[in-house]
Amino acid sequence: MMGFLQSGLDSLPGVAAMMQFKPPAASSIADSVDQLYLMLTGITIFFSVLIFSIIFYFMLKYRRKSPGESGTETHTPMMLELTWTIIPSLICVVLFVWSSSLYVRNGRPPNSSTEIFVIGKQWMWHLQHPEGPREINELHVPVGVPVKITMTSQDVIHDFYIPAFRVKKDVLPGRYSQIWFQPTETGTFHLFCAQYCGTNHSQMIGWVYVMSPTDYATWLAGGEKTESMAQQGERLFSQFGCGNCHSPEAAGHAPSLAGIYGKPEKTQNGETRVVDEDLIRQAILVPNSVHLPNYQPIMPTYQGQIDEEQMLQLIAYVKSLGSEERMNGK
């Protein structure tokens, strides 16, 4: 407890600075979320004050004057009941439309986003930039550029949360979730895990460094030289012998992967699915569940042979195969 007192005293001068009521708003969507938040706060204050003052007024005006006194019977006017049913309904409709349109708009990343890959594991964030550099519990991004984050978990459910950007999404094992943001100011911001994930959940935190584009370029170039994620993925591609079948020369054993990402494909059980991160992952781990109808289900499973990081690199490679030429060119 002494420690508490001590730190309490130490922090006194800082109290004013620390008594902030608004988190930094540092992304393109933050202000729009704050406006809605402000509106909701206004509604909450309005109705709370309204109810509280009516109660206080009635309490004083109609207080019992003698012990035997009773209240006066009032009838229930239908109009009044309807009014206070309909007005809250209308407010709710407005709020729903407002918040949902924001949500839908904020949910879709712009096409030009740079993509960063995240793996959550007990109890750290592991991040990798497409250019290759890896980071632990730190994320460096340039200001003013939309960034898409593709995330998965190696163990339990985590949640990637950057309060200053007003973004948050659960990070689940066995599938990929995505968020995006566009930082609007440089600075250092909190990164939290917001889904309880075990003993050191509260230490699964980090910092997001938003840098000017030139600083970012310097930072990117400054680290130790690594291959890009797609190159790493390509190496894995040949290491696991994927190319033996999945290349144009392999004479129809398996579909060519060039340009397959983002295209709708019909699988053998008749459903049409867009080839996304989840589908690629499934195709590698449980190939028979999604093989294409024109091919024999002969691909072996790679369950247990590829870790989450390698999986992301393979996905980055497949995504980089924009066209047939690039594959042929190799």
Binding site: S32, V33, L36, Y37, L40, I43, T44, F47, S48, I51, F52, I55, C92, L95, F96, W98, S99, S100, L102, Y103, N106, D159, Y161, P163, R166, V167, K168, A194, Q195
Partner: peptide, 25 residues
């Protein structure tokens, strides 16, 4: 009545998708 009013109204923040994303958890 007073506290439930506040509790109920702050529920709206969480029914609203855009603010729930920030406040959830």
């Amino acid at each position: 009545i007073g506290l439930f009013t506040i509790g109920g109204l702050t529920g709206l923040f969480l029914a609203a998708l855009a603010t729930d994303v920030h406040l959830n958890g």
